[in-house]
């Protein structure tokens, strides 16, 4: 076999980057060619949502191997909660597959998950596997089974309403599965109002109006996301409430700019400059 004639130093930056990329990928492969299980520190890693202030409140972002609950703020906010959960799952999943377990009842109430709509948010549907569960018990069981599969990037668990099966024990089982594998669990509480809580973070999500300058057309998806419970920082993190807008190009959440003046780069904006959050509804 011929040895490489290139001295390491003679490599161009492009091939250096390529090498870096290869190293990263090889590191992710286990001895058997399968996805390597995450190291303990990777399992608890914080993945930023992109919104600087929200990420700061979470100590860097939602933790990977943890349960994150997403509730609609009111009846009619299910689509917003659904979108927020899907986008958060996508942020957390990296380039790994996503499993979405949903209860049949959720489909009857507000429709089946629509792959072209996910694609429109930047989530590649070919990464998605859907489990259609007949009842809440099956949702939890399938969710737990999926969470144990370390190759996944995220699992969205979507029961309907406030089922009895969704008790503290069931939630703890999800938490344990997520912590064990390092796979993030997003508990999307479509049609749900409350109930027991074992999640690391709990979000209440409402729809938010499109940006003003978008004229009469609809702007990018916007959310009013309230972090109601935050156990990520030493058990008692600060709650908070932010206007988020999804940036499709950069695949991240950014502060929504409803003042009318679009900022040059939302990511560079100092967090303090964001005004008080105002609920825009009656």
């Amino acid at each position: 076999m011929e040895r490489s004639r290139h001295a390491p130093g003679s490599m161009g930056t492009a091939s250096q980057d390529h090498l870096q990329e290869l190293r990263r990928k090889i590191a992710a492969v286990g001895a058997d060619g399968r996805a390597r299980e995450l190291a303990p520190e990777e399992k608890t890693a914080r993945i930023p949502l992109g919104h600087a202030e929200a990420d700061r409140a979470l100590g860097g972002g939602p933790a990977r191997g943890a349960l994150h609950a997403v509730l609609p703020a009111a009846y009619g906010d299910e689509p917003a909660a659904c979108g927020f959960a899907a986008l958060a799952a996508m942020r957390l999943a990296g380039d790994r597959p996503i499993v979405w377990v949903r209860q049949d009842m959720a489909v009857r109430e507000f429709g089946e998950i629509h792959a072209p709509g996910l694609a429109g948010l930047g989530l590649d549907p070919s990464r998605l596997t859907l489990v259609a569960a007949a009842d809440a018990r099956d949702v939890l069981r399938a969710g737990e089974e999926a969470l144990r599969c370390a190759a996944l990037g995220a699992v969205i668990v979507e029961p309907w309403g406030d089922p009895k099966a969704l008790d503290l024990t069931a939630l703890r089982r999800l938490v344990l599965a997520a912590e064990g594998s390092g796979v993030p669990a997003l508990l999307l509480r479509s049609g749900g109002r409350g109930g027991p809580d074992a999640a690391a973070t709990r979000w209440s999500v409402a729809a938010a109006p499109s940006r003003a300058e978008a004229g009469l057309g609809l702007g990018p998806p916007a959310f009013l996301a309230t972090l109601e419970r935050n156990r990520q920082i030493g058990g008692t993190g600060e709650p908070g409430s932010w206007m988020l807008e999804w940036n499709h190009e950069r695949r991240r959440f950014e502060p929504a700019t409803h003042s009318g003046a679009r900022l040059p780069d939302a990511g560079d904006r100092p967090a303090e400059a964001e005004g008080a959050v105002v609920r825009l509804r009656a």
Binding site: P79, C82, G83, A86, F110, G111, E112, I113, H114, A115, P116, G117, L118, A119, G120, L121, G122, D124, P125, S126, L128, S210, R211, A214, G217, L218, G219, P220, P221, H248, E249
Partner: peptide, 23 residues
């Protein structure tokens, strides 16, 4: 899904996705 071209559903810059998330 692996063979499909989903990019046709991407939104235009600063606009909402053309298709809904639930149908």
């Amino acid at each position: 899904a692996l063979a499909a071209d989903w990019t046709i559903f991407a939104p235009e810059a600063d606009a909402a996705p053309p298709r809904p998330i639930r149908l």
